[in-house]
């Protein structure tokens, strides 16, 4: 029960790996080279799935957090944590791949257009979320606080986007053409992109489940440690003085 990968997950893993391999073949062999951008346009097939996953992650973290506040069940908190942590990883990769793609195409690593601004702020927000989880005192209170932050963060996304968008249009002379991105995709390109999104989403889901299981082990370990503490400290006060001290014993077993 502890440890070994269940058959279902093994099948899932194999299918995902196969799908990812197939996607790589589609990206580099099957999909045609884009006319204007050249080979570098193949970055699209990894950048867009990463962006899509980040968006989904924000949504899942917020939903799981709402569920946690409503039900108080720890599994929802674990879902939120697993999704947020993997989401920050994917978000980081999205920002990095985006920057590397932007350099040859836009000739800058970064531009403050609405999408990029929103993404950067979101990234900081979810890093802060993970920091809060690390710095908060252990216990349910920490989970509740984290849930509130996740929900507020998700609410903030459209506001940030709207404000950043308006702010950009307020400075049209600084706009650097993300229009380059919007040139139409051929049908092979669209299919490749779609398959890639499916493959990466499957891989991401596998990672989330992996992380979720680690979280459960962490919780289990915490409980076991408490049991062991109780076991070791309680009898320690017991011998010899037991007759006189019996009333004062449980104090040793903090929380």
């Amino acid at each position: 029960m502890v440890g070994a990968v269940g058959p279902k997950r093994a099948v899932w893993l194999v299918i995902t790996a196969g799908l990812v391999l197939f996607t790589m073949w589609m990206i580099f062999e099957w999909a045609p080279t884009e006319r204007n951008l050249g080979e570098i346009q193949r970055a699209l097939y990894i950048h867009v799935p990463l962006a899509w996953i980040s968006m989904v992650a924000v949504f899942i973290v917020a939903s799981a957090s709402v569920m946690y506040l409503i039900t108080g069940k720890r599994k929802w908190d674990s879902v939120a944590l697993a999704t947020a942590e993997t989401g920050v990883l994917v978000g980081t990769l999205m920002l990095v791949t985006g920057a590397i793609w932007a350099k040859p195409i836009w000739n800058v690593w970064w531009t403050w257009d609405a999408k990029l601004t929103t993404t950067a702020i979101l990234w900081f927000l979810y890093v802060a979320y993970l920091m809060l989880r690390a710095f908060a005192p252990p216990g349910n209170q920490a989970y509740r606080m984290a849930a509130v932050v996740a929900i507020l963060g998700a609410i903030d996304v459209p506001l940030v986007y709207y404000a950043a968008d308006l702010w950009r249009t307020a400075h049209p002379e600084l706009l650097i053409g993300p229009a380059a991105e919007s040139s139409g995709l051929s049908s092979e390109m669209s299919i490749t992109l779609l398959v890639s999104v499916v493959a990466f989403t499957s891989l991401y889901a596998y990672m989330v489940v992996d992380r979720y299981r680690v979280r459960q082990s962490e919780n289990e370990l915490g409980e076991l440690k408490r049991d062991v503490r109780n076991l070791l400290y309680r009898p320690a006060a017991e011998p010899a003085t037991a007759a006189t001290m019996r009333g004062a014993v449980p104090a040793a077993s903090g929380d």
């Binding site: 050249g38 080979e39 791949t97 590397i100």
Partner: peptide, 13 residues
Amino acid sequence: TNTEANLDFLFAI
């Protein structure tokens, strides 16, 4: 345009 320009960027990504 040279379609193979920037291959190192793609590789890095």
